[in-house]
Every structure is written in C-alpha cells, then in structure tokens.
Amino acid sequence: MRADIFDGGFADPVFTSQAVFRAVMDASARPGTIADLGDVAQAPAPVPAATAAILLTLADFDTPVWFEGADSTAASQWLSFHTGAVTTPDAAAASFAVLEEGSDASTWSQFAQGTADYPDRSATLLLPLAGLEGGRSLTLSGPGIEGRAVIAPRGLPEDFIEVMQANRSCYPLGFDVVLVCGTQALALPRTVRIEV
C-alpha cells in the first residue's frame, strides 16, 4: 500500500467535519453559492481536496461509495482507512459517487434516485471540474435561490444541462450533485432548475 493512503485525514475530526458539514449544508441550502471547504484533507490523486473533505465528513460504513475510472484503488483504500466506508462496484447501491473530470453525464441514470415512498434513498454525485467560475453562464432557480442565481462553471460534461433538466423533471426522485474544484464546492440539489 502507498503511504499517502494513511495521510490526508482531518487533523481535528470533530471540529473540521462540523465546519465542512456546515459549509456543504449552506451550499445545498443556497444553490449557486460557492463554498470554500478549506485545505483540510488530501486524498490520493485525482480526488480533489473538496471531495476528500466531503467524504471524510459524511461517509462511513453505512454509506457505500462508488468510484468512477480505473485509477481509484488508492483513493478507495484511503477512504476505507479514514472512514470505514466500503467501495462498491454497484453504482446503483452507492450513497456517494466520486466522479472523474469529464464524466459522461448520460450514464448517471445508473445512480440511485430514490423511490416514490423514499426519495431520500438516492445518491449524491461529486463531480470535479476545471473551475467553478469563468465558464459559460447558467441561470439557476428553485428553493434556496432568491429569484435567480448565475453560475459559470468550467469544464462541464457535454450533456450536463440536459441530464440535470431530466433529473429535475423526475422530482421528487433524483440524485443530488456537488460540483467541486480544489477546495471549493457548489451544490446543485435535485430541486434546482438550470437554464442556459
């Protein structure tokens, strides 16, 4: 095993996970706002720091995690060492999906979207991007947003908008997405309406 598997955890788990959670909660409650989670966790490449921090905060042996891409062994071992979370090969069983840059959005329908009785039994997708600012402007509306909000993430997957619109149309079923870059995160819960 590589040494970096044992490093990169929270120095102060109780307070750091609280701070990261609050930042993620605020970001989810106000879609479109960018939260800086701080330089608090490092997972083996290519997992961004924000993804690492979110996993350390929310994942444990009750939450199967799914990794996209072939090069995830080290990240999976890192996660298991620090949180006890199990990596699942079954995308539909995952509570969290750790995606790759340029993930093919058309495959996301494989993730759990809940059931009519339990729409909460659904996955949260962590999507890394080249940047959360400086890209093409997208307009957001929905709960948590006063009127409209504008975001401009860079490097979105090709079908992203269509897939998110389809996800919205299934409400209350659906997955929830968090865009990450470096230590930053931007939440797009299933309620958000995205327009170009």
Binding site: P13, S17, L58, T63, T124, D176
Partner: peptide, 18 residues
C-alpha cells in the same frame, strides 16, 4: 460522531427534497 454523520446526511437530503 457516527450519529452526527447519520443526522447530517439526513439533513442534506431533507434540504434537497423540501
């Protein structure tokens, strides 16, 4: 901490499905 994590996950889903 385990209990907090479980509750935090529930809160995030609750926010996503008002």
């Amino acid at each position: 901490e385990q209990t907090k994590r479980m509750i935090r996950r529930a809160i995030l889903k609750a926010i996503a499905i008002p």
